[in-house]
């Protein structure tokens, strides 16, 4: 069942007078992994943060255009609702250092003041941690602080925290750039599992990662969406010469 879940229409983002994302039109299919790649400063992270309205938290940042989530424009919705439906995982693992592993997973409920019965909380914690393949590693130390885990485990904890809110879309902003190679491949394996239940959009500097994990790839260059196609197509026969130059490393 193929269907569009996120669709941007003439999306533009600015930092003050600096036009960083220019007229991006993209359609993202449900239950796929979309990789967004491009050189530094090409606006890919800004675009990603625009999808769940995190962009505008930065002073001086503004955006124009539409981003449709299931046909509803997120620019018209309250950011808090948007962020409940579109989860985000960041570059550096950032579990809440004052909370236990258990509380970190249900942080979205606990810190938002949503009261749940204990049994339901237990269920959410176990399900979320299982989905990120962390349950077996931490089930005996749920009361320990999140910062006791290794970097890769912390990042999976952060993914579990986003997953616990049952969002429709998960955004990843260079999720493995602070991790070692082994943790990186664990997280990459996770993407294949996660896409069964969620739609994933991943910003990455690492072309190989984009190639390995994604179904579709978008290539951004100086704020423009240059090419958006199946990953296989993109890496064997890109249409745009700029994409070809970028993925072959002939970029000046």
């Amino acid at each position: 069942m193929e269907s569009t879940i996120v669709k941007s229409i003439d999306y533009n983002a600015y930092f003050g007078d600096n036009h960083v994302v220019k007229n991006v039109n993209i359609e993202i299919t449900r239950n796929t992994v979309t990789a967004v790649m491009g050189p530094s400063g090409c606006g890919k992270t800004t675009f990603l943060r625009g999808i769940n309205r995190m962009h505008e938290l930065i002073p001086g940042a503004t955006a124009k255009g539409k981003i449709m989530l299931n046909g509803e424009d997120v620019m018209e919705m309250h950011p808090i609702f948007v962020r409940l439906k579109i989860g985000m995982v960041f570059q550096r693992p950032n579990p809440f250092p004052n909370l236990s592993i258990y509380d970190n997973v249900i942080a979205g409920y606990k810190l938002n003041g949503i009261k749940l019965p204990k049994a339901e909380k237990d269920k959410i914690v176990e399900l979320s941690l299982s989905r990120v393949a962390l349950w077996n590693e931490v089930k005996d130390s749920l009361t320990k602080k999140g910062s006791f885990l290794s970097g890769g485990q912390q990042q999976r904890l952060c993914i579990a925290r986003a997953v616990a809110m049952e969002p429709e879309v998960l955004l990843f902003d260079e999720p493995t750039s602070a991790l070692d190679p082994i943790s990186t491949s664990t997280v990459e394996e996770l993407f294949h599992e996660l896409k069964k239940n969620y739609t994933l959009i991943i910003v990455t500097h690492n072309m190989q990662q984009a190639a390995r994990v994604s179904d579709k790839t978008a290539f951004f260059y100086v704020g423009e969406l240059v090419e958006f196609d199946d990953t296989k197509q993109m890496f064997t026969n890109p249409t745009d010469i700029r994409t070809q130059n970028y993925i072959t490393g002939r970029f000046s």
């Binding site: 190989q208 190639a211 390995r212 990953t231 296989k232 890496f235 064997t236």
Partner: peptide, 9 residues
């Protein structure tokens, strides 16, 4: 084979 070469190095 081409796809695997391109995607997985």
């Amino acid at each position: 084979c081409e796809d695997i070469f391109a995607l997985y190095c």
